[in-house]
Design a protein around this nucleic acid. Structure first.
Lengths: 210, 210
DNA sequence: CACAATACATAACACTGCTATGGATTCATA
DNA sequence: TATGAATCCATAGCAGTGTTATGTATTGTG
């Protein structure tokens, strides 16, 4: 039986401070270990256990943070009146995020999606699905297109390129493969080839003030 | 100055034995550690250092072994008179290999392609490039197709799906996404849509004794 | 046959994440 | 308000990690 009385409440600042520092050390390519993590923060190694239950819990929280940031980045992609262009912009933002935080991206995808909130994957796909819906109602995609399915396929393209570029043999500039690959996928979903090419190329580069 | 005299020669059996055991423990989901690796083999922990220079070297060798097995598996894919069908068969073999040895596949792609022979990636792509060449000369793809480029894109599709299925939220059955994705890519390379669909579906499933 | 260079078993080292312990702090209740 | 219980967390120690020093056995070469 769980007793609700609490004598002391965890400080959420410490929690986010540790996650933040872990992400920062990851970015600086410093080895993130229990002792190096708490060094300089004033808190002790035990804090990691009261807040996360151990290093596994910390990494789980860091992964969650990675997906949260990714979702925020995708949500920040502006919406135009061309849904296919917006789809390409989402793909470009996905890859841009992965290349900006390569080590965080790598951490997000090892240890098999062991997240605090397992619906993070759905969240990531949500704006993709929504934009595909818009493309359908706009008549760009034909009726048999299943939005979650096409979103998954777009994700697989983005993740495949990001993964091969972050941890593999592809260079950063190889990410432009995203343009022909997404174009091919969207054409197969029913979009007009010429229009699709234009939309994807427009959405791929950052929104220019035209 | 290097002296060529040697008093005792390394036994290559020990080397492959350790790699084999590491792969086997990986498959059994047992933690592969220096001491558990040598336990029962008769050799001591120092053997890992004389043969691989340390655990990093061992993992490097394991990754190399993974790519070698992958290349062998791709080379074993039978060649038909339909190059597009063969391309799909290569993709299916790639995913099949990843799902048969998920932990080995994961090891292959972390630590950033730190391999003994860095040309392993090219080897993996070689049969893809060769088959794409065949498709070009057969008139299935138009002339502007750059074989290495299209091979990279096919690889990105395969790796994206494999990675999301091995370590991500995709289930094993989600690998059928490979069919529409490869079809879309090959159609964009110039193949006839209806013929392409037939070829990819034929190549996707294991070669039936027709 | 002697010598030198390699292979490798043993043991100790620094480091990892983790846990047992106890003191400090804070809220709920009498 | 004062007591008590529950929580946070700093300290210290533990088992396990990869690595390195040391010494011994083994083998090809002069």
């Amino acid at each position: 039986m769980y007793c609700a009385t609490m004598a002391r409440t965890k400080d959420p600042k410490v929690r986010s401070l540790l996650i933040e520092k872990a992400a920062q050390m990851l970015r600086a390519r410093q080895p993130v270990t229990l002792r190096t993590l708490v060094a300089g923060t004033g808190v002790s190694t035990m804090a990691v256990y009261t807040y996360f239950g151990g290093m596994d819990g910390l990494w789980r929280a860091v992964r969650q943070e990675g997906f949260t940031r990714l979702a925020a980045r995708l949500d920040a992609v502006p919406t135009s009146e061309d849904p296919v262009r917006d789809l390409a912009a989402l793909g470009a933002a996905y890859l841009s995020n992965a290349m900006a935080h390569p080590d965080l991206y790598r951490v997000m995808f090892d240890a098999g999606f062991d997240l605090e909130d397992p619906s993070a994957a759905d969240e990531t796909l949500h704006c993709l699905v929504h934009t595909i819906d818009r493309a359908k109602t706009a008549g760009r995609f034909h009726g048999e297109v299943d939005p979650p399915e096409l979103a998954t396929q777009s994700w697989a393209i983005g993740h495949g390129l990001a993964s091969l570029a972050v941890t593999g043999p592809l260079t950063h500039q190889a990410l432009v493969h995203g343009v022909p690959m997404l174009t091919a996928l969207f054409i197969s979903a029913g979009d007009d080839p010429a229009q699709c090419r234009r939309s994807v190329e427009l959405g791929w580069q950052p929104p220019s003030p035209s």
